[in-house]
Amino acid sequence: MIRSRRGRTTTAIVAATVLLAFPSSSGAVPAGPAGDRPIDCRDWPRPDPLTVRNVKPVYSTASGKWAGEANVTLWRGDAGPRGEWHYWATLTGRTRPGDAVWLDVWPPGGGPWHRCGPFPVARDGQKVASPMAVWRDFTLVKACARHNDSGACGRDKGAMVD
C-alpha cells in the first residue's frame, strides 16, 4: 500500500522477471539463428541411457547443412517419474573444438526463444549433448549447433506433437 500526499491509499504491484545466464566455457555467444536469451539450465537432468526410456529422435539434420560432416538431432525420451517427456539436443559426427550444441526453448505464453547452452566440443569426434528440457515447461523446442564456424537449427517442434 502506498499513501499519496492527498491521503489516498493505492496499491502498487511491482513485478520483476529474472533471467539467469548459463555461462559457456568459451564465453562466446554462438552465432546463427539461436535466440539471444540464455536460460539457466545447469540443474536440468542430463540424458542417461540407464534412466531415459522410450528414446527416439524427433528430427535430425543428417541430410541438411552439414551432410556427411556433423549431425544435430533433437531427441525425446521418458525420463520423469510421472512419464514426462524430455527433449534434448546432440551434436555428433566429425566434430572438432570450436563446435557446440544448444537447445532453444520457447516458454509457455510466448517468446522469445531462450538458449540452454552452448555446450562445446573439447576434442575431435566428441559427441556433445544438452541437458533435457521437460515438455510441460516449454511449448516449443529446437536443436541448434555450430560446426565449422557456421550455426544452424532444426525446425521448431511442439513438445506434445510427434
Rank of each mutant, 00 (worst) to 15 (best):
R155C: 02
D99T: 01
N71M: 12
I39M: 07
A100C: 09
G68F: 04
G110N: 01
A16E: 08
A143N: 13
E69G: 10
P47G: 09
W113L: 07
G83W: 11
E84D: 12
I2R: 04
P30L: 06
L140H: 15
A89T: 08
A62R: 10
V14P: 02
G83F: 12
A34M: 05
G98T: 10
P112H: 04
R37P: 03
L19V: 14
G27L: 07
P120N: 11
F22N: 12
A67I: 10
V101K: 04
P131H: 13
A100W: 02
R3A: 09
R5W: 01
T95M: 08
V52W: 14
R76P: 10
G151Q: 02
G64F: 09
G110R: 03
P118G: 11
R82V: 03
S4R: 09
G117V: 00
E69V: 15
S25Q: 10
Y87W: 03
I39A: 14
T10L: 12
R5C: 04
D78F: 02
D104L: 02
R5T: 01
D104P: 00
T92F: 05
A143T: 07
V105M: 08
G110A: 02
T92L: 06
P38I: 09
G158Q: 14
T73D: 06
S26K: 07
T95R: 12
S63W: 12
V72P: 03
E69I: 11
V52A: 14
W75N: 01
H114T: 06
R46H: 03
A21C: 07
P33L: 08
A122H: 15
V134E: 03
N148H: 11
V101I: 01
M160Y: 12
G111R: 01
W135I: 00
N54W: 01
R123F: 06
V134W: 02
W88K: 02
L19G: 15
D36M: 00
V161D: 11
P57E: 10
P118I: 08
M1A: 14
R94N: 10
A67K: 14
A31H: 09
P81K: 05
W44F: 09
D104K: 06
V121I: 10
G32H: 11
S4D: 07
L103E: 06
W85I: 06
S63T: 13
T17R: 14
G77P: 09
S63Y: 08
R155S: 06
R123Y: 06
C153I: 02
P49S: 03
P23R: 05
T11C: 12
I13E: 13
L19H: 11
T92H: 08
P38L: 09
A143V: 10
P57V: 00
A152T: 14
A15M: 08
D99G: 05
G64I: 12
D99M: 05
D137H: 07
R96F: 00
K127A: 09
V72D: 00
T139C: 02
A12S: 15
R94F: 04
S150Q: 15
G68P: 00
I39V: 14
S26C: 12
V58L: 15
A70G: 04
R96W: 04
S60A: 10
K157Y: 04
V55N: 13
S26D: 15
G98V: 09
D36P: 03
G35T: 08
C116A: 10
